[in-house]
Design a protein around this nucleic acid. Structure first.
Lengths: 109, 109
DNA sequence: AACACTATATCCAATTAATAGATATATGAT
DNA sequence: ATCATATATCTATTAATTGGATATAGTGTT
């Protein structure tokens, strides 16, 4: 697994984070971001990014299995984070913590 | 303080993170990132981004006060994170945590 | 003096990503 | 029919990243 697949753009990172604890469908991801004061990403950014994340193996999708009376409107497609997706979020956090703590080797002292 | 100033590009985020705990000079920031497996950012990306961060008030800079014999080579310029810079990193983390935990209001039950 | 190394800094061109707006399709409710 | 929900794509513009080059300056070595 070359770790270059795990590199995330800012939008991909928030989208992935929105899936970290719960599976969600598209517009639900958007609502989660908007409710938390994130920079507004439109569905024109959302769907292509979900597709890219899926292609990289960081998320999986499945069509909603709810009965039609459960909600109005069209079918929902649910997105779920994969183990590789979780790892991608972790790697980013480890990078931020690592660069902060890093110290140069002072030869001698 | 409009929070739009606090929006960070990916490179700006790692650079800021590298300054979170220690003041550092340019090439030291690069070394910190490289040592932690971050995507390689060159000094052609570094200096313009440091300037942008300074303009936004997220970092401050000062010329090194070391005696000339402390290290070989040219003068170092040290960068230091500001309170607003710390806040920008926090906001990002809160966003990631917030979107993960968010739940839609289920009207009724 | 010439050279190498460290260090900051800018410029250009090419690629990639983000953003706004429009359009299309499908489903269910009023 | 119309409205609201929902997924999906397209185009054009703007912003960000990247690689490569160039410039300047201080310090140590040959």
């Amino acid at each position: 697994m070359s770790e270059s697949n795990l590199r995330l753009t800012p939008n991909q990172e928030v989208i992935l984070a929105a899936l970290r604890l719960h599976r969600r469908y598209g517009l639900e991801i958007l609502a989660a971001i908007e409710s938390n004061g994130g920079k507004q990403i439109g569905f024109n950014s959302l769907y292509p990014n979900l597709k890219k994340l899926e292609k990289k193996g960081l998320v999986q999708s499945e069509w909603g299995d709810e009965p039609p009376e459960a909600h109005s409107g069209a079918r929902r497609k649910y997105y779920r984070i994969t183990a590789a997706g979780i790892r991608a979020l972790e790697i980013k956090q480890e990078l931020l913590a690592g660069v902060a703590a890093w110290r140069p080797e002072t030869e001698g002292a």
